[in-house]
Simulated scan of single mutants.
Amino acid sequence: MTDAHHWRLPNLLSAFRLVAAPVLFLLALQGHREPFLWLLAAAFFTDAIDGTLARLTGQASRFGAMLDSWGDVAVYTAVAASMLLLWPELVRQEYLAFSAVVASFILPAVAGLVRFRRFTSYHTRLVKLAVVATAAGLFLLLLGVAAWPFRAAAVLAVLAALEEVAITLVLDRERSNVGGLWEVLRERRRDGPPA
């Protein structure tokens, strides 16, 4: 695949998050809550549509899956640090939920690095659901609407992380865009153990 193919719209949307992450952190350092929320909404939106757009247009690729994962890591890291700067009291109040969400991003990444020496990019259905729930719950929390959606999303994020770690332990090589643990186990049963 040529470099021009790497930079089609779905991958540009993923790359946007790589650029947005340091800007989010700078906005947090300067105490700009409203611009931070707008940029975060844009980052979450690109995360929601880049993979779907890639599949619908036939532009899904391993490069795109990895770029998407790197964009996610960058944004979630910036958000975790920024929350401590912009909403420290809220982080203290919801410490368990925030810790669970942060752990849900760190543990699968560490498992992938240890097992395959790279970040995994499974994009399971459960991870996609957890990301949407976490984004919605975070906004409801930050806007003062309710805390319970974020708490529920934290539980879902932990379940998604556990599934990702289990997939990492089951696979004999790293793969992108895995539907879920059951699909991996079914394929393994069908294909037999690795030679």
Rank of each mutant, 00 (worst) to 15 (best):
E187H: 08
G58A: 10
P22G: 13
Q30E: 15
R186Q: 13
A21D: 13
A103C: 07
G64T: 04
A161K: 03
W70Q: 08
V131W: 00
G112P: 03
A20W: 04
E94H: 12
T134L: 06
A130V: 01
V132H: 04
S69N: 08
Y76S: 08
T124E: 01
Y95M: 15
G112C: 12
A109R: 01
F98Q: 00
A100V: 10
L39F: 05
S99N: 07
R186G: 06
T52Y: 14
A15T: 11
R189A: 15
W38G: 02
D172L: 03
V127C: 11
F119N: 03
D72C: 00
A147E: 14
W148V: 10
K128G: 12
R151F: 00
L40W: 07
P149Y: 03
T124G: 00
V131H: 04
E163T: 01
D191C: 09
H6M: 09
H5P: 05
E163I: 04
N177G: 10
E174H: 11
A100R: 00
R118K: 13
A152W: 01
L141F: 09
A54N: 10
F16A: 12
G112Y: 00
G179T: 10
A135C: 07
L181M: 10
E34H: 12
R92H: 11
G144L: 07
A133F: 11
L140Q: 12
P88I: 06
V132T: 14
L140D: 05
L18Y: 09
L40M: 13
L181K: 09
M66E: 14
L171F: 02
A103Q: 03
A100M: 14
A54D: 03
A130M: 04
D47Y: 02
V127N: 06
P10E: 02
P22F: 08
L156I: 05
L142R: 01
I49Q: 07
L24R: 04
P88G: 09
L9G: 01
P10G: 09
H6W: 13
A78Y: 03
F16P: 05
S99Y: 08
V132L: 15
P35T: 12
L129Y: 11
A80Y: 06
G71R: 03
F63H: 07
S176L: 07
F150E: 01
Q93C: 09
W148E: 07
H32F: 12
S82F: 05
